[in-house]
Amino acid sequence: MEKRIKIDQVEPVGYKAILGLEKFIESTPLSRTHKELIKIRASQINGCAFCIDMHTKEARKAGETEQRIYALNAWRDTSFFSEDERAILALTEEVTLISNHVKDETYQAALKVLGETYLAQVILAIITINAWNRIGIATQLMPV
């Protein structure tokens, strides 16, 4: 693969703006588990190897089980995920695949179990990891 630009060096102001959103997400009461599930699932959908590698390692450090990480792409077919996690994962998939839109039933289910503020924070977390995925994929960041 050819070497590509490093966004943080070429356009540091823009990079810092995205980093600011990441810092906001980290300051919210979103649970570490919810944050990592969002990051891993969106990164799986987008095919960002760098982010999948990073966030699965971070999830394991935070206590996430191997079983749940391995089953994440088939979360609908397991009993490993709670009602709130299932709502978050459904929303993560639909926001990540935004051209299909977010279904009313997905949104309402998430609102019901999460409440407005937590739902807003979840949506912002999904948007943030999607931005990072696009940077990682566009610049061919590789896991190490």
Rank of each mutant, 00 (worst) to 15 (best):
E2R: 00
K3N: 11
R4W: 03
I7H: 00
I7P: 00
D8F: 15
D8Y: 13
Q9A: 02
Q9M: 08
Q9W: 07
V10I: 08
E11T: 12
P12D: 07
G14C: 03
G14Y: 10
G14A: 04
Y15G: 03
K16Y: 11
K16E: 03
A17W: 12
A17Q: 08
L19D: 12
G20L: 08
E22K: 08
E22W: 00
E22A: 01
K23Q: 02
F24V: 07
S27F: 07
T28Y: 06
P29S: 07
P29E: 04
L30Y: 14
L30A: 03
R32H: 11
R32P: 13
K35A: 14
E36F: 05
L37F: 06
L37N: 02
I38M: 11
I40K: 05
I40S: 01
R41Q: 02
R41N: 12
A42Q: 04
A42D: 01
S43Q: 02
Q44N: 06
I45S: 11
N46P: 06
F50R: 15
I52C: 14
I52F: 09
D53T: 09
D53A: 15
M54W: 08
H55C: 02
E58S: 14
A59N: 14
A59S: 05
G63H: 00
G63W: 03
G63E: 01
G63R: 12
E64N: 13
Q67R: 15
Q67F: 13
R68P: 01
R68Q: 12
I69H: 12
Y70L: 10
Y70H: 14
A71H: 04
L72Y: 10
L72P: 13
L72R: 12
N73W: 10
T78V: 02
F80W: 09
A87L: 15
A87I: 10
I88A: 08
I88G: 06
I88T: 06
I88L: 11
I88F: 04
L89A: 09
L89Y: 12
L91P: 03
T96M: 06
T96N: 04
L97V: 06
L97Q: 15
I98N: 04
I98S: 01
S99Y: 06
N100T: 14
H101Q: 15
H101R: 04
V102M: 15
V102N: 05
V102Y: 09
D104W: 08
E105H: 09
Y107E: 07
Q108Y: 10
Q108E: 11
Q108K: 10
A109C: 13
A110I: 14
L111F: 11
L111H: 05
L111D: 12
K112E: 09
V113I: 12
V113G: 00
L114Y: 00
T117H: 14
A120T: 11
Q121W: 07
I123S: 09
I123N: 08
L124N: 04
A125V: 14
I126D: 05
I127H: 03
I127N: 03
I127L: 02
T128M: 10
N130V: 14
R134K: 07
I135L: 08
A138C: 03
T139R: 02
Q140G: 06
L141S: 02
M142D: 02
P143H: 15
P143A: 03
